[in-house]
Design a protein around this nucleic acid. Structure first.
Lengths: 406, 406
DNA sequence: GCAGGTTAATTCGATGCTTGAATTATGACT
DNA sequence: AGTCATAATTCAAGCATCGAATTAACCTGC
């Protein structure tokens, strides 16, 4: 329900700013051409953005005999954003400039394996203070804080977190954080923030329809439709790991059976390897080293386990292809990377076998380009995305300006 | 990439028109309140719409002592729309007024079981002429023709149809139809048009996130996200029937194995019944009567087959819940209706068992309220949806009006 | 039947935004 | 230094919305 002529301005600011932020530096003329706005309006809007310090001129390019064009880009130093990754074992807090260059990072192990919400909030707030101190950035120079958190984040007036496995039920994390800081808070599921990072800076650049899959100990996905993350009615869309792939198959920690996660999550893969070894414990002191051992083993038992894994994973991806018809599927997450580096082709073949021909032909399956650290990066993009969507509307209160007569 | 101040007008026309079309009759004041537009603007825009004949005044309601409000609604007779359902066995062509009341219908059996595109086009064009003649409606009084067709419809400059099973590969159906009529053509997959019909007039009214499942001989779905049908990159999203539910299970006609359709499509159900009967042929002379026989049988073998069917269908729905987090899942299609009437509760229970608790709690699973005839109805909504989205912009050429001086 | 009250709808001046054409700015080439 | 070419800015004109004031339509009570 749009309304007034001010919305127009806001929208056009948003269009130009997004074009400058997400694309290469451009001249005012380029902006006019790509946005469809007239030269005059571009000049006008850009002038405003420059005056506000959001956009800066960045060099000249001579143009075939005429006046050289001045290139414009977003001012990386105009403000900063903070990304927080609340994982199941540790918290990572990172400050970036607007160009998403990291300025300082703080990583803390989580105090407990079944963390108490209040303790997590305390640790996050500590991390915020500490990371700002290290980077020498004041609170006033921060646009906002994005928080990527395990579990399902239900958006609403105030976002809440559900995490069945550790007993969090509708924890009002956003309100709790707001109570401890005046910085704007943006809360989102960690898998989705990683998806956002891959979408903007990784294997999903420039794509409108994509699914970023996240394979770690568990399995998740972020579905991007028309360039934006799908959330569904209550933001819990994308639970790919708990779709049934083997009817009445292996029990899953979600309580159901035969979920994808119960086959291709790292924990499940290692379980299957152990079973294939006749119950003998698998080598490695943690999941990561065990999975590495499996991938390096080379013996027939290990190969069989891996072949099955590729089959399950390919089938899961085929389901994504048939349901979402994406341009790209990205395999990410630490286990996803490990598996993909070793056998992405095989996974792709399995997916081809099981997907409908036509949509499969439209999809490219790729390895993620960012590591798991990108959860914080993706979280930090949340305030930026909001800035771009708002057109950086300064939301200035209606200025009571009394013009002096000429 | 929006632009000018005219877009504002178009958008606000669209808002008001949609509110009038999709909602109950409203006064100008009501419109102002719900849309956020000022009284003056509403009056202005509505005046335009009335002058164009799109909107009419519909009665007065007195208002507690003051001037009674005049209610407004879309003029049902302003224009007409045609819906065409190109099924695998027959073609149905139907004229509606703008309020979607049917005025005339033509049904023709399809000439061949493996229809030739040119023959189909000929039959559709014949149907158009015939149905207009019967309804006494001239071509000039038709807003557009929506065509719901089996197979995958790839949108683009000109929509094409892919239907692997009958050998249609990128058939340029839109172009072929345009060659035979001047009426605007809108092409879409039949399952999606049925979804649109349920969304506007059936079990999906007022819902923003829904999945309309379509269970017939085959299995499909229309996914509605943020009130609009998801199409994915090349419009083939929503192939729920060909998601893998039983890894390496029963072979499916798509070439893969273990697809949902290979278990809960009517053909598959009857196959499984036959197998459970030790290979004895099932009663009934066609799929519909056979399925009815299965549902009426009551014996332990039949009940077992049905119980399994409920399990598979429930699992498939649980996958939809986990992936899309919809507010509503609608079970439609002739077989879906038959199954749902008998055991929707059981299907719901199976879905609850297998879905994540939180998103399942947000979803209601309901039986479709419209029959299969609604494919044509849904197709006919396509031109209407376009009208609403365009704000019925008359796309009038810039009027060169020379105002006479006062 | 007429004044006063109440709510609905329209009118109109003020304001803000985009456009398109004209103007100014900036540099290369001769 | 003059001419050409391209980029950016300026400015009057045209649209669209808003808010306040006005007009319209009907009710109630005396």
């Amino acid at each position: 329900m749009r309304r007034t002529v001010r919305d127009l301005r806001r929208h056009n600011r948003s269009v130009l700013l997004s074009s400058l932020y997400l694309g290469d530096p451009q001249s005012r003329q380029d902006l006019g051409r790509t946005s469809g706005l007239s030269q005059g309006t571009v000049s006008n809007v850009v002038g405003e953005l420059i005056e506000e310090g959001l956009v800066i001129e960045a060099g000249l390019v001579d143009s075939d005999g005429g006046r050289p064009r001045t290139l414009l880009r977003v001012n990386p130093g105009h403000t900063h954003v903070i990304g927080v990754d609340v994982g199941e074992t540790r918290i990572r807090v990172e400050v970036f400039d607007l160009a998403m260059r990291p300025l300082a990072t703080v990583v803390q192990p989580l105090a407990s394996a079944r963390p108490d919400p209040a303790a997590v909030v305390e640790q996050v707030l500590d991390g915020l203070r500490e990371v700002l101190r290290r980077a020498g950035v004041g609170e006033g120079e921060v646009l906002g804080v994005g928080v990527g958190v395990f579990g399902t984040v239900e958006q609403g007036a105030e976002a809440t977190v559900h995490a069945q496995t550790i007993g969090w039920d509708a924890v009002p994390l956003e309100r709790m954080l707001r109570a401890g800081t005046t910085l704007p808070i943006y809360l989102e599921n960690g898998a989705k923030t990683l998806g956002q990072a891959e979408l903007w800076f990784g294997a999903g650049r420039g794509v409108q329809h994509a699914v970023i899959t996240l394979v770690g100990s568990g399995v998740g996905a972020a579905v991007i439709s028309n360039g934006a993350i799908s959330r569904g009615a209550t933001s819990s869309a994308g639970e790919w790991g708990h779709t049934c792939l083997v009817y009445d198959g292996r029990p899953c920690r979600c309580g159901s059976r035969g979920c994808l996660e119960a086959y291709v999550g790292a924990e499940a893969i290692l379980d299957r390897w152990k079973a294939a070894r006749g119950g003998h414990a698998v080598p490695g002191r943690d999941e990561e080293s065990s999975l590495a051992a499996l991938l390096a083993d080379g013996g027939p038992v290990a190969e069989q386990v891996l072949a099955e894994t590729a089959g399950y994973l390919g089938a899961g991806m085929a389901n994504l292809v048939n349901l979402f018809n994406p341009e790209r599927i990205v395999l990410a997450g630490w286990a996803g990377h490990a598996l993909g580096r070793r056998m992405l082709d095989r996974i792709r073949d399995e997916a081809r076998e099981r997907a409908l021909r036509h949509p499969f032909g439209q999809t490219s399956i790729q390895l993620g380009r960012l590591g798991l650290d990108a959860v914080a990066l993706g979280a930090a993009t949340l305030p930026v995305a909001d800035l771009l969507a708002r057109g950086a509307a300064t939301d200035r209160a209606p200025v009571l300006r009394v013009d002096a007569p000429a």
